[in-house]
Structure formats: structure tokens, C-alpha cells
Simulated assay, not measured.
Amino acid sequence: MASHQPATMKAWLYSSATGGLEKNLQLNLNAPQPRQPLFKNEILVEVISMSVNPADAKLPELGFVAKALISTPASPGLDYCGRVVATGTVVDSVRIGEIIFGKLEKPTKFGTLGQYVVVTHEDCASLPDGVDPDHAAAIGTAGLTAYQSIVPYVKAGSKVFINGGSGGVGTFGIQIAKNAGCHVTTTCSAPNVSLCQELGADDVIDYKTTDVYQELVARGQIFDLVVDNAGTPLNLYKDSANFLKPEGIFEQVGGPMSFSGTATVASNMLLPSFLGGGKRPYHFFVAKNSHDDLAEIGRLMKEGKIRAVIDSIFEYEDAPRAFEKLKTGRARGKIVVHVTKKP
């Protein structure tokens, strides 16, 4: 049921991202809360912890495009773990005071770097006993992306290549693929080889000292699935028939936010094989919010079958530094920000 809430909240806000989002965030201790009263199927959540994703910065930095999608001032952030403080009239899947985790359906004016957010049933799952809210806050985008880009396409014994194994999606992906019984090959730089191996990777390629494409070609058509979190080398999909099985699938998850990167994705999606395009099925992957998938990832975490790899944790007053760290491109796993006090 709905309950009375203060009209304001604390929130890190941006009105422009010129020069970088991290340089434009301003802390407002009296920012307006999300719309009230709630719609009948909505849940108001006080955020305990959130985690940052590349898209949280990339979208605001698109300038006029971003302003057309999100009114400002706005708070960035999609992923969260928090406590339920109010519910719409038909919500019966959670109770007030319960701790839940998940991700917002899409970027919004009221992101998870604000104290309160509004979600629905598909955007959340209950926090399992024994799982730290910081770890649950790391699941959201990265966990759903890894789970949905791998699990539907593999079976025990499948061979999976994960391009980019040490970031948020990659660290979850290695573990999820191994839990599904797959053989996992991944890429990372030398300092992260041991991490990828600890997570279960069977074979790790150092992309800084090895030509990734040539290394894959040398192995032949052995892979059932490629999950490309990195987007480089740019020719990876077009030449994937040299290492993907004829029935293999190429999932494009991430890539450089540049003209060449965008042009490559467009070409991969639109150029037919007889005109020089790739010869394997190509999916540009976008995660879909799913209560059931979030609950399953939470269950795997509770049972110790997967874990969140946390690179660093920032207190709320230091939130801009979380984006500074994200932009270095050297985070091992996820970056978390504390928003309110943990239970």
C-alpha cells in the first residue's frame, strides 16, 4: 500500500555532461522525489547501494540526444539494492521494509544515484539471505546481460568465447557459463589473468600481447557461442566463421562508443554475407528486465555458485569518483556506491 513520504530526497544531479559526466554531477540534498502517488503496480524503493555502468555516463554525454530522452536535472544509474518504502495498490509480491535488488527498466530522470527510485515487479527480486546488498547492487545490468546472453544458447559441454572477461559483464559471464557446464575461453590483460582463472575460465588470452583473432582462428571452428563485451578487434564478427561452428551464434554486448564502433555494429547487422558480411547469426544484445532471471542469479549467489566481483566501493559524497574510476577502463568487476545506510 502507499505510505506518506517526504517530498524531497538527496540526489546527485546533472543538467549537462559537457566535458564528462563526472565533472558535472552536483549533490542536491533537497531534490524532488519521483512521482507520487504511485501507479497501482509500482514500488517505491529507498536505494541502499547502486553500481555504475558505462551506459550511465555514455548516455548523458550524448548531448542533445540525451536531452531528448531524459529531462534534466537528472540522476544517472540503473542498478540498485534497496528497501521497499511504499507500494501501489495491487502489488503483493513485496512488503514494505523488504530488501530487493535489480535494475531500472530504462534510463530515467530519477536514476539510482538518487535516494529513491520507482520500479515494478519485473525490475526486482528479493534479496536472498546472506547476500550483501553491495553484491546484489552489482547484479542488475551486468548480471542480467551475462545471464541472458549465455544461458539460452548453451548446454553442458558447449564452448564459449567471452571477449572481455574482467569487467562487470565478463566476470559474471565466466561464472554463469561455467555453472552451465561450458568450456570458457576469455580475454583480458595480464594483471587480470589470475582473476579470470579464479572465476573458472579454462583458457585466458592476453589481448595486449596476443593477436586475439589469429589465436581464435588457430583453434578452428570450435565455439558454440561468442559473447563480445569489448567490441574489438572490429573484424571479430565478420571473420567469426573461422572459429564459430556453422550453427554458432555471435552476441554483441559492448563496444567502443565511436563512429567506427557504431559503423561496425550497423554493418554487422545489415550487411549480408554475399556482400562481405558475417556468415553466422549476429545479435546486438540488450538485456530485458526479468524478475525470474534476477531471482535465479540471486539464488546462484546465495548458493555460492557465482559471486560479484567488486572493484571498489565509494561513499555517497564521493560518487563522482566512481565515474572517474569507471572511465579508466581498468575496473576489475563492478564499482559500487553507498547511497544510504546498509541494514
Rank of each mutant, 00 (worst) to 15 (best):
H283K: 15
H283W: 06
H283P: 00
F285K: 13
F285L: 10
F285T: 11
F285W: 13
F285N: 14
F285C: 12
V286M: 08
V286T: 14
V286L: 11
V286S: 08
A287G: 01
A287M: 09
K288H: 07
K288D: 08
K288A: 07
K288F: 05
K288Y: 06
K288C: 05
K288E: 09
N289E: 11
N289F: 03
N289K: 09
S290A: 09
S290Y: 00
S290L: 07
S290F: 00
H291N: 07
D292A: 13
D292C: 04
D292E: 12
D293H: 14
D293C: 07
D293Q: 14
L294W: 01
L294Q: 04
L294F: 07
L294H: 03
L294A: 03
L294N: 04
A295F: 00
E296H: 13
E296F: 07
E296K: 11
I297D: 01
G298M: 08
G298P: 00
G298Q: 04
G298I: 10
G298V: 13
R299C: 04
R299N: 08
R299P: 02
R299H: 07
L300I: 00
L300F: 04
L300R: 05
M301A: 05
M301Y: 02
M301D: 05
K302V: 08
K302R: 13
K302D: 01
K302G: 06
K302S: 14
E303P: 01
G304W: 01
G304I: 10
G304C: 08
K305S: 05
K305L: 11
K305V: 09
K305D: 01
K305P: 08
I306E: 01
I306S: 01
I306F: 04
I306A: 00
I306W: 00
I306V: 14
I306K: 00
R307G: 09
A308R: 03
A308M: 09
A308Y: 08
A308P: 03
V309S: 09
V309W: 00
V309Q: 05
I310D: 02
I310H: 02
I310S: 06
I310N: 04
D311M: 07
D311K: 15
D311N: 15
S312K: 10
S312Q: 12
S312V: 12
S312A: 11
I313D: 02
I313H: 10
I313A: 11
I313Y: 05
I313V: 13
F314I: 11
F314C: 12
F314M: 12
E315K: 12
E315M: 06
E315G: 11
E315C: 08
E315H: 11
Y316L: 15
Y316A: 14
Y316Q: 11
E317G: 12
E317K: 15
E317S: 14
E317Q: 15
D318V: 06
D318Y: 07
D318Q: 15
D318A: 14
D318M: 08
D318R: 14
A319L: 14
A319P: 06
A319G: 10
P320S: 08
P320A: 09
P320D: 02
P320Y: 03
P320T: 10
R321N: 13
R321P: 00
R321W: 06
R321D: 15
A322I: 01
A322F: 02
A322L: 03
